[in-house]
């Protein structure tokens, strides 16, 4: 037995966390400056989101109700950025700084939900497709391929039309979940097939292990890396698409401090009359956040085992 296989075996026995540390993935990733930049951006946004949401509970940040209701009489309307209102105020005299910070919470929350649900669905479909090959595989994967061929924003628009308006942002989340699931299914199937090709799975199957056990114990853990990469890349896209749907009027209900909606109002009501701050700041935070996820995702993909890299587009 060569040294290499010995090390691999030892690593296998130490569990996932230890394996991650032993793998070149993490060190590769951390030596990539762009990816580290992405991590810093994401951590900063998470901190902002937590401050806005939980700060409201203990009174160091404005609560959602204050951010939603008009502040005419309390604040000046359409005031440019100042010390009191760093991002200015909107037509209803609401503090844009507070609204944009709370928007970070909404973006993180709904982005997480979208990615989490589509990852779960995608993992299920992808693993089933990889394991029960032939007709099941073919029908699942070719359906995913056709769905992937649809332009994502237009597909999301079509799906949004099916769900009732009362759902608010959840309507957009549901539509986007369906749009994103195929991407995960594809990655997971590709990764799972590579794992299944490995001999030890054959050995386990030969020993008579039941299907679900093989899937959960052996296939899934080995697919975690590509799944994580795909989730990271799609997190940015999810935030972007959610904001786009809000921008077009199919997302958050009026008054909600979501980035897309503030931007939409800022562009439609404030851009041509000179209130640039109204649309500038929500867009800035949105773009930075998405860039953070894209930088990290790209770096993770480069650090991935080349055999798995193919599966992630």
């Amino acid at each position: 037995m060569s040294t290499e296989t010995k090390t691999k075996q030892a690593a296998d026995e130490r569990g996932f966390l230890a394996r991650l540390q032993a793998s070149p993935f993490l060190s590769d990733l951390l030596s990539n400056r762009l990816a580290v930049g992405g991590i810093v951006i994401i951590l900063a946004m998470v901190a902002i989101a937590i401050y806005a949401r939980f700060g409201a509970l203990i009174g160091i940040a404005p609560d959602l109700q204050t951010l939603k209701t008009t502040q005419l009489g309390t604040n000046p309307s359409l005031a440019p950025p100042s010390a009191a209102h760093p991002f200015g105020t909107d037509i209803q005299a609401r503090d844009i700084f507070g609204r944009v910070l709370y928007g970070a919470w909404l973006a993180m929350k709904f982005g997480t939900v979208t990615v989490a649900i589509s990852t779960t669905l995608g993992v299920g479909l992808g693993i089933v497709a990889a394991y029960y090959s032939d007709i099941t595989d073919n029908i699942i994967m070719r359906t995913m391929d056709v769905l992937l061929a649809f332009p994502s924003l237009l597909l999301a628009l079509a799906l949004v039309a099916i769900f009732p308006d009362e759902l608010g942002l959840w309507r957009a989340v549901t539509a986007l979940t369906l749009v994103y699931t195929p991407r995960f299914a594809r990655v997971v199937r590709g990764a799972a097939l590579k794992v299944l090709e490995d001999e030890y799975i054959d050995a386990t199957v030969a020993l008579g292990a039941k299907d679900p056990r093989v899937l959960v114990r052996h296939v899934l853990p080995n697919c975690l890396a590509p799944i994580t990469v795909q989730s990271t890349l799609n997190f940015g896209l999810a935030i972007l698409d959610l904001a786009a749907l809000s921008f077009l009027g199919f997302g958050a209900e009026a008054g909600t401090p979501s980035w897309g909606l503030i931007l939409s109002n800022g562009v439609k009501q404030g851009l041509l009359t000179g209130e640039w701050w109204w649309s500038f700041f929500p867009g800035l935070l949105l773009a930075i956040t998405v860039l953070g996820f894209n930088l990290l995702g790209d770096g993770m993909r480069d650090a991935l085992d080349p055999r798995m890299r193919d599966a992630v587009e």
Binding site: G266, L271, F280, G283, V290, L291, N294
Partner: peptide
Amino acid sequence: LTGISVPIYWSGPLLIL
């Protein structure tokens, strides 16, 4: 990467500005 990350509904208004 920045070109993909910056949404059209923000880069558009920026250019207008």
